[in-house]
Lab assay of single mutants.
Amino acid sequence: MTEYKLVVVGAGGVGKSALTIQLIQNHFVDEYDPTIEDSYRKQVVIDGETCLLDILDTAGQEEYSAMRDQYMRTGEGFLCVFAINNTKSFEDIHHYREQIKRVKDSEDVPMVLVGNKCDLPSRTVDTKQAQDLARSYGIPFIETSAKTRQGVDDAFYTLVREIRKHKEKMSKDGKKKKKKSKTKCVIM
């Protein structure tokens, strides 16, 4: 069974824990209790493949930012979460993405942009803004509501699919490099 290491990042209060708990335990946590770091595991079937999701729910508070490099190193894919009623959390996505790329030393890291709290009427981040940002990053965008469960499975499952595509691409690139290195030079 394939294991996928997913990391949920975003500013404090955007609903990272609520999304994760909704996926794992099928219930909505409405009281806000700032996370330092929590880890969850769940076995699911995605596109006919049974897999184990190892999900790291991270601290959004700035005082825990020193811990970010460590979990970013171990993560295979990242859910970059903002709240649709919090423009600052949307603007912060850029910083999370840049930090992930720096730590992973790669421009090509599996990510999904997630606009959470889409059940709320007080939207300050337009869907088109988020779609445009995701398009500019070359990553999928999904709106979710941890409260109603809308888009929750889709967000995590899409990230797994992005990781699969990335692994497939990397193995193809690896095979191309191996083929090239088999060419021999004969000096007579």
Rank of each mutant, 00 (worst) to 15 (best):
R41F: 13
F141R: 06
R164N: 11
K101N: 09
T144Y: 05
D38G: 00
L120W: 10
D173E: 05
D33N: 01
D47G: 10
K172G: 11
D38E: 01
T2V: 08
H27M: 15
S136D: 15
E31Y: 15
D47C: 10
V114P: 02
H27V: 09
D33L: 00
L159M: 13
A59W: 00
R41D: 08
S136C: 05
K16W: 02
Y40T: 00
E98A: 04
G174N: 07
E76V: 10
D47E: 12
C118M: 12
Q43R: 14
K167T: 12
V9S: 09
A11I: 13
T2L: 10
E31W: 11
T2N: 15
L133D: 07
D154F: 06
R41N: 13
N116I: 12
G138D: 05
D108Q: 13
T74C: 10
S106H: 13
I139V: 07
V109R: 03
L53C: 11
R161V: 13
A83I: 02
I36F: 03
I21H: 15
G10W: 02
V81A: 06
K184F: 04
S181H: 09
C51S: 11
K42V: 09
A18G: 10
E49Y: 12
D30A: 10
Y32L: 03
R135I: 14
P121L: 08
T58W: 00
Q25D: 15
R123M: 12
A66E: 03
E76L: 04
Q150F: 07
K101A: 15
S65K: 09
K180T: 15
T127K: 05
D54M: 03
R102G: 05
K176A: 10
V44D: 13
I21K: 05
R102V: 07
P121G: 12
I55E: 00
E168P: 13
I100N: 02
G12M: 13
K5A: 06
M67C: 01
A59S: 05
Y64M: 03
V103Q: 02
G75Y: 06
V7P: 09
I84Y: 14
H95G: 13
A134D: 12
K178S: 09
P34F: 06
A130Q: 08
I100M: 07
I93V: 08
D132L: 05
P121K: 08
E3Y: 07
E98V: 02
E31D: 12
L113K: 02
A66D: 03
I36M: 04
T2I: 08
H95T: 15
Q70R: 01
Q25K: 05
M170D: 10
M67N: 00
D38I: 00
V112I: 06
T2E: 15
F156T: 04
M72G: 01
H95K: 09
K184M: 03
I46Q: 15
V7I: 07
I142H: 12
E98W: 01
N116V: 15
G77M: 11
T144V: 12
F141W: 03
F28E: 01
L120N: 15
D154K: 06
K182A: 15
V160A: 07
T20C: 07
H166T: 12
G10M: 02
G115F: 07
I100R: 02
D30M: 10
D153Y: 07
S122F: 09
A130C: 11
P110Y: 01
D153R: 05
K175F: 09
L79S: 01
V125H: 13
N116R: 01
P110N: 04
K172M: 14
I187F: 08
Y40D: 00
V160D: 04
I24D: 12
E49D: 10
R123T: 11
Y32S: 02
P121N: 13
D47N: 09
D132H: 06
E91K: 03
T50D: 09
R102S: 06
K117I: 15
V44C: 12
T2F: 10
A155H: 12
S65Q: 07
S17A: 00
D105V: 04
I24Q: 10
E98D: 06
P121H: 13
V8E: 05
Q129N: 10
Y71Q: 00
V9W: 00
V152E: 12
D105R: 07
Y157V: 14
K5I: 01
L53P: 07
H95W: 03
V109T: 13
E3V: 07
G77C: 14
E63N: 04
L6Q: 03
S145E: 15
E49V: 08
C185M: 15
K167H: 10
P140R: 08
E49I: 06
A130S: 08
V14K: 13
M72C: 03
N116K: 01
D126W: 07
Y4T: 07
E37N: 01
S106I: 13
G12Q: 13
M111F: 09
I84D: 15
M170F: 12
K117S: 14
E63C: 05
F141D: 11
Y137T: 09
I100Q: 01
K128T: 05
Y64S: 00
V8G: 04
K117D: 14
T58G: 01
F28N: 01
V160K: 10
A155V: 08
V29D: 11
T58E: 01
V29E: 12
N26K: 11
K104Q: 13
E168S: 11
D38T: 00
I100A: 04
E76N: 03
L113C: 05
V9I: 09
I84V: 13
E76T: 10
V152T: 10
S106M: 15
M170L: 07
G115R: 07
E62G: 03
S65E: 10
D47P: 06
H166V: 11
S65T: 05
H27D: 15
E107K: 14
R97F: 15
D54V: 02
K16Q: 02
F82P: 01
D47A: 09
M67Q: 00
V81M: 13
S106N: 10
G60N: 00
H166E: 06
Y32F: 02
K147W: 03
K42W: 06
A66T: 06
K16A: 03
Q150T: 12
E31Q: 11
L56E: 01
D57W: 00
S136T: 08
L19C: 13
L52C: 12
Y32Q: 02
D132N: 06
D92G: 05
T158H: 15
T158K: 09
S89C: 15
Y4A: 09
K88N: 11
K101W: 05
Y157G: 11
I55L: 08
G115L: 11
R123A: 12
T20P: 00
I36Y: 02
R41S: 11
T158Y: 06
K165R: 11
T2Q: 13
Y32G: 01
L53H: 04
D119C: 06
K167G: 04
V44Y: 10
K101S: 11
Y71A: 02
V9G: 10
K172I: 09
M170R: 14
H95Y: 06
K16V: 00
S106V: 12
D47R: 10
N116F: 01
I139P: 07
G77R: 02
L56I: 15
H166N: 07
I36K: 00
Q25E: 15
C118H: 13
S39K: 03
I142K: 04
H166K: 12
I24V: 07
V9Y: 01
C118Y: 11
L133K: 06
D54T: 03
I142V: 10
G13D: 13
T127V: 09
T35M: 00
D30N: 09
V7R: 09
Q99E: 04
R149M: 04
L6E: 01
K172N: 08
M72I: 03
P110F: 02
L133Q: 07
Y64D: 00
R164S: 09
I187N: 11
V29I: 11
S65F: 06
E76Y: 11
Q70E: 15
G12A: 13
G151R: 13
M72Y: 01
Y96T: 04
V7N: 04
V109W: 07
D132W: 05
G77A: 14
S17E: 01
D92L: 06
D126F: 09
D38P: 02
Q70D: 15
L6C: 10
R161M: 04
R102D: 10
E91M: 13
A155M: 14
L113T: 07
D33F: 01
T58D: 00
S181P: 15
R73F: 07
S39W: 01
E168M: 13
M67L: 14
T20K: 00
A83D: 15
D132F: 06
L56P: 00
V9C: 14
T183A: 12
T183C: 03
D57K: 00
D47Y: 05
